[in-house]
Design a protein around this nucleic acid. Sequence first.
DNA 1: GTCTGTTTGAAACATACGTTTGAAGCACAT
DNA 2: ATGTGCTTCAAACGTATGTTTCAAACAGAC
Lengths: 225, 225
Amino acid sequence: MAQSDTVDRILDAAEELFAERGFSETSLRMITSKAKVNLAAVNYHFGSKNALIHAVFGRFLTPFSATLEKAFDELEVRCDGKPPTLNQTLWVLTESAVRMPQRNEKGISIFMRLLGLAYTQSQGHLRKFLEQEYSEPFSRFMRLLKEATPQLSAVDRYWRIQFMLGATAFTMSSSDALQDILRNKLGVDTTVQEIAARLVPFLAAGMQAQDALLAPRAESKIPVA
Amino acid sequence: MAQSDTVDRILDAAEELFAERGFSETSLRMITSKAKVNLAAVNYHFGSKNALIHAVFGRFLTPFSATLEKAFDELEVRCDGKPPTLNQTLWVLTESAVRMPQRNEKGISIFMRLLGLAYTQSQGHLRKFLEQEYSEPFSRFMRLLKEATPQLSAVDRYWRIQFMLGATAFTMSSSDALQDILRNKLGVDTTVQEIAARLVPFLAAGMQAQDALLAPRAESKIPVA
DNA sequence: GTCTGTTTGAAACATACGTTTGAAGCACAT
DNA sequence: ATGTGCTTCAAACGTATGTTTCAAACAGAC
């Protein structure tokens, strides 16, 4: 069977297990037994566990970043000259994510969960890998955000972007569990698309909130250090 | 020295290392050597590594939840009858966190980072422990949120609360790294207090955003499944 | 001092991990 | 058929982990 589907089977299993359990909590033996391949296959095809982690990210991040670039291009054409609004920028991002061709029905939530883990689990090697591989679409997104929120100071913008990332990564990364809870509690079904549709207005409103450091109640103000 | 400070030395070291590196990435040998105690001391005093993790959380979560209960009591008195506003509720929460007596200068960020990890690293035993130990202040907070946002549907409120939790847990769990980046990029120093002061308005604005499912641009709308 | 219960210490235990090895299996060109 | 290059396989390697063991050290009561 051509260059053997071993590589893909490993990637599929690794992706799912990493998303479920994190990186250090997932052993090569779990991966290879789920993928039904020999233990040595990972080191043979990828070289090391860390390299496998990089490959898992590369497999979905490379096409995603291409899709995103194109979507940003279209957006800028559509806006000819004028900088896109915050809402437009956020929508383009979430649409690109949601529209990515999925390997299976869990695709989008695995995708999100992995992104969240990449930020959260301070695996030095991963962060370095992502920075040098995907710095371009990332900084382009940042530039668009900057142009869409000229009223914010650089520091305010920086932190609010982190808040957005957090809300997104966290929600999407546990979207399965959260959907289950909601179904049990309120008997409502939700798709990832609907979650995204709820998330974007939340983020946009947060980004455009009034100046951050004007505390709302004098007696409630936190003393500055 | 009384019942020996071994227990506290272990807790101090464990707390710091867990916050820095996560749970599975921190070995008992790292902890005991940092604490300058014998390896066996952990299992002697705590029983197991998992029990040590619970003890680390218990040590700061129990006083925190007491502080929080009192703060909620005061808030409700201050509002006599009327339900507290969203801003008030969020401020009371962050103030209670920020004002907790700190063991050292890193106290608050360790505190936050651990809370973030607790949500993020899906350690089953930890989640179960936290749920059955601290369900009361948690559900009280939820009740206050509900009363503060009567205009939201239950489903909207549910998702927006998840967004808030995500933004908070994520930001706080990597607050050190994020502060470093900001220092290198813009040469600005930030305290955890300031992060909290920026976070609250962001969250409040997001919670009170216009109805979630009115998409902003027709041609950008995500097709409903 | 001597006994008693608790705490510490060095060493070992069993297990799990990532990685390496070298033989076997396989497809395919010659 | 034979040789060649790639892939699979079972087994082992070395190291690190959480936990247990049991003797030594210690503190306080008598």
